[in-house]
Design a binder for these strands. Structure first.
Lengths: 319, 319
DNA sequence: CACCGTTACGAGGTACGTAACTATG
DNA sequence: CATAGTTACGTACCTCGTAACGGTG
C-alpha cells in the first residue's frame, strides 16, 4: 500500500475511468498505473473498479468506500505540504483564487493591492470560470479559494462563507429615456417599465442572473433579453452602442469610470445577493490565506473560518 | 514522501523520541529509520524533531503540526484496510475489546455469547488494564473499543458513549451483623454505620472508587479501607475470609452464584455511575462492531454511534 | 479495427541492512 | 564509556518504462 496507488486510483476516477488518461495526467506509463491498481486491489482483497472484460466502467461498492477514504488521505497529504511550507517559508507561497469575472474585475482589485503589500512574496493567480467550474477547481486542489455569488453554497465538500452583499443596477446611455428620470422616479421604477426596453445582462450561470429571471417570471413578464454575457464590461459596451438597457451587479458600476453611462439603483427589484467565498472542507490554509479572507471580509476572522472548515460542510448564516 | 516515513515519524514520537526503539517496533534497522526521517524533513524543508547534537529530544513546532496531520493520515490508512475487509470478508475479522476486569467478568458475558453466535467467524480478544491504559490502547489502534466507568470520557481523541448505569452494593458474610438487617433497615443504612467496619473495595483507578471516597469525604468520615483490589472476585474472596465488608459494583454481585455472601443494595449512598464505551474519533468501524455496540446497549444504534464518531469528540448525554 | 487494459521483461534506482563513525550525557 | 544518531556502502528488490499481447465496442 503506498501513496502512488492512492494517486492512481483517484486520478483514474477523475478521468472517468480511463487509465490511459490518468497515466498521462500523472506523467507516467499506462501499464504502470494498471499494475499498481491491480496490486492494490489484490492487497485489499477487493475489486475497486467494475470491469467489463478489460474495460473499466466504474466503481464497485467497496471501491466507492475506498475512494472516499483515499480522498481524505490525499487531502491530508496535501495539507502536510502546506503545513510545512507554512513554517519553512512563512510569507511565501502561492494563492490561487478561482472566481467569476465580476469578482476578478470589480471586487478583488479592492483587496489584492493591500494583500500584495503585506505579502509581497506570495505568488497570486486568478482563474476564471463558471461557478460550477470554480467549485470543481477548489475541490480538486487546483485553487485555494472560489469566489462567486451563485450555486457555490450547494456544492458538497465545499465550505462557503458569506463575503459581502450587493444589489443590481440598471445602466443606460445618457440619451436613453430612463436616463432623465429624477431620483424619486427611479425609486418607483417597475419591472414592467424596464421590460419595455431590450435588455443586455449576464449569462445564466453568473452574477444573480437567476434572480433577474425569477423577478420577471414572478410577475409573469417576459423581458426581451437581447444579449447575454458573462461580464459587465461586455454588457456595458453593448449598452453603450445602443443595444438596450443593461442590468449588472452594483459593484460593476462606477459613476466616475463609467461616465459614459447612467446608473439607476433599482436593487430592490431584483433582491439582495450574497457573494460567498468557498474553500475545501478540511483543508489546511496558509496563514496568508486567512489574512486574505479577513481583508476581503472583516467578519471572516481566522476563528470563524477555521471552525467552518473543521465542521466540514458547515455554513455560516449570511448575517 | 511515503507512508513508511509517516510510520517512522509516528513511531518515533510514540517511543519517546528513541529511534532505536521505533526501529525495533517496526521490525527494521535503525539507520534506515534515521535516513528516512532525515529525507522526509529535507523534502518538507523543515525540522520535525528537536535535536541536541545527535540526540532527538522532542518535536519542533512545525513537527507538532506535521505529526498531527500524519496521525490523521495513518488513521485513514487503517480505515482503508478495515473498509476493504468489510467487503472482502463480510462477517470475518477481529474485535479487540479493552476493558476493566469488572466489564470482562460481569458485563461482557451477557453480550458476547449472542455476538459470537451472530458472528462466529469474528475473532474476539479481551485486553484488560486501567482506564488510562484502555484509552491509550484504543487511541493507538491496539483495541477497537474501550469499556470502563471512570475517566474515559476525559481523554481527547476518544469518543465515549454511555452504555449502562449502575450502583454499588455492599457484600458481607452471612454471620456479619449487617447481614441480618431487614430490608427496611438496609434502606436506612448510613455511611457512618458502614464505616464502623473494615472495608474491602476497589483500587483507586477502578469502578467508581473515587465516588466511594468522595461520598465518605463529603461527610468527613474516614473509613478503614483495609484492602484494595482491582476486581470484585478478589474483594469477595477477602470478605469471605472475614477481612471486612465489601463494596463492589452492583453487576458484580449475583445472589445465586454468590450464595456465600449477602448483598445489601446501598447504591444511593455512593451515587449512580455510567459505564461508557470509547472508540477512537474518526475511525471506520466494521459492521459487526456496530452490531456489538447495539447488543451491549440498545440505544447505541449505528446512526447514533456514527454521528458521534464523525463529530469527533462528540459525546452523548447519559440519558 | 481502433482503442484500451493486461502481461512480459529488462534497466535503473531506491530501500534497507551491516559496518563504521561520532556525539552526548 | 555506554548509548543513540548519522554516514558510508553494497546488495536485493522493486519500480517503471518499452514492447508485445488480448479484449471490447
Amino acid at each position: 500500500m503506498n501513496l502512488q496507488q492512492f494517486r492512481f486510483v483517484r486520478e483514474t476516477i477523475r478521468r472517468d475511468f480511463n487509465l490511459t488518461e490518468a497515466a498521462r495526467m500523472l506523467y507516467t506509463s499506462q501499464p504502470g498505473v494498471s499494475k499498481a491498481i491491480l496490486e492494490f486491489e489484490d492487497e485489499l482483497g477487493i475489486k475497486i473498479f467494475e470491469r467489463h472484460g478489460k474495460r473499466i466502467k466504474g466503481l464497485t461498492r467497496p471501491g466507492l468506500a475506498v475512494s472516499q477514504v483515499i480522498d481524505r488521505i490525499m487531502l491530508e497529504v496535501d495539507n502536510l505540504k502546506k503545513v510545512s511550507d507554512e513554517y519553512a517559508r512563512r510569507d511565501e507561497g502561492g494563492l490561487t483564487i478561482a472566481c467569476t469575472h465580476t469578482q476578478a474585475r470589480y471586487m478583488l482589485p479592492k483587496v489584492i493591492p493591500a494583500f500584495r503589500q503585506r505579502f509581497p512574496k506570495v505568488h497570486l493567480s486568478l482563474a476564471e470560470g463558471s461557478p460550477r467550474q470554480l467549485a470543481e477547481m477548489v475541490l480538486h486542489g487546483q485553487a485555494d479559494l472560489a469566489i462567486a455569488t451563485e450555486s457555490l453554497a450547494l456544492t458538497p465538500g465545499l465550505v462557503t462563507l458569506p463575503c459581502y452583499t450587493w444589489e443590481h443596477v440598471v445602466v443606460v446611455r445618457p440619451d436613453h429615456p430612463l436616463a432623465d428620470l429624477r431620483s424619486s422616479a427611479v425609486k418607483k421604477l417597475s419591472l414592467e417599465q424596464l421590460a419595455e426596453y431590450p435588455i443586455v445582462t449576464y449569462d445564466r450561470a453568473f452574477s444573480g442572473r437567476t434572480a433577474i429571471d425569477d423577478a420577471f417570471a414572478g410577475q409573469r413578464i417576459h423581458p426581451d433579453i437581447v444579449l447575454e454575457a458573462i461580464d459587465a464590461d461586455v454588457i456595458k459596451t453593448y449598452v453603450d452602442v445602443g443595444m438596450g438597457i443593461g442590468i449588472i451587479a452594483g459593484v460593476a458600476y462606477d459613476p466616475r469610470r463609467d461616465s459614459g453611462l447612467v446608473g439607476l439603483p433599482v436593487g430592490r427589484l431584483f433582491g439582495t445577493h450574497t457573494t460567498r467565498i468557498g474553500v475545501k472542507a478540511g483543508v489546511f490554509l496558509r496563514d496568508y490565506v486567512y489574512t486574505f479572507l479577513e481583508m476581503a471580509a472583516p467578519q471572516l476572522t481566522r476563528e470563524v473560518v477555521q471552525q467552518a472548515i473543521m465542521e466540514h460542510g458547515g455554513d455560516i448564516a449570511p448575517e
